[in-house]
């Protein structure tokens, strides 16, 4: 069960993506630090205000993710068989689910520090992995890796790995079993239902 702990602490830092700078490692570092600085000062987020945390993630983190590619990878083979409208719906629902997860993880942040490992990349590289780790006293540090691809002048995150657990891979089996049972529309419906139930429980608080 220890990986779960790593997973949680990892999610805390998921918020760290990329900034406008050209070097991908600099961007990841800047966004991470910026987001954590905001969380450190924000009592609402610390006390579990998910809506506020979602706002922060939407504003600072989401612009640096390529959700289309993330969703395509998580859906796997069935992605190309899906219609454009289905693809759009899948990417939207998956995005909503992930944003909420990260936002919640941010509300659990407690003074961990993040180290970044130096990035070795050639100027011609268009696909890089940034390694970072979260340090916390009394526990093994947790590694967070971001996979990024060059998208025009920008770098976009298309997967990230927390303590060895890839976000895309973690959803692949869940998606494929749902598609096998009820088709692509079934998966869209179940993602919609999931998001709606999370909204409803958030509204109750």
């Amino acid at each position: 069960m220890k990986w779960v702990m790593g997973f949680l602490a990892g999610l805390v830092i998921c918020a760290s993506a990329i900034a406008e700078d050209s070097a991908p490692d600099v961007m990841v570092k800047n966004v991470t630090n910026e987001v954590l600085e905001i969380v450190k000062k924000d009592k609402d987020i610390q006390s579990g205000n998910t809506r506020k945390a979602i706002g922060l993630v939407e504003a600072k983190v989401i612009p640096h993710f390529n959700f289309q590619r993330m969703t395509a990878q998580a859906v796997g083979k069935s992605w190309r068989l899906a219609t454009a409208a289905q693809q759009k719906a899948l990417a939207e629902e998956f995005r909503t689910l992930l944003v909420r997860t990260y936002a919640n993880a941010l509300t659990a942040y407690k003074n961990q520090t993040v180290d970044f490992k130096p990035l070795k990349m050639a100027p011609t590289d268009t696909d890089v992995t940034i390694h970072s780790s979260i340090r916390q006293p009394g526990a093994k540090s947790i590694d967070i890796d971001y996979a990024l691809e060059k998208d025009g002048p920008d770098w976009k995150v298309y997967d990230f790995t927390i303590g060895g657990i890839s976000m895309v891979t973690s959803y692949r089996d869940q998606f494929s079993q749902q598609i096998a049972a009820d088709g692509v529309d079934g998966l869209i419906k179940s993602l919609q239902a999931k998001n709606a139930s999370l909204d409803a429980s958030a509204a109750k608080k």
Partner: peptide
């Protein structure tokens, strides 16, 4: 692990698969 509960409950479509795939990846990485 208590704080992780909420994250997993919310993130997983199928908690069983989610934990299995997480576990297998995590162990391989370790």
């Amino acid at each position: 692990l208590l704080p992780a509960d909420k994250v997993i409950e919310e993130a997983a479509l199928d908690k069983y698969s989610y934990i299995r795939d997480g576990y297998l990846q995590r162990r391989r990485s370790l």
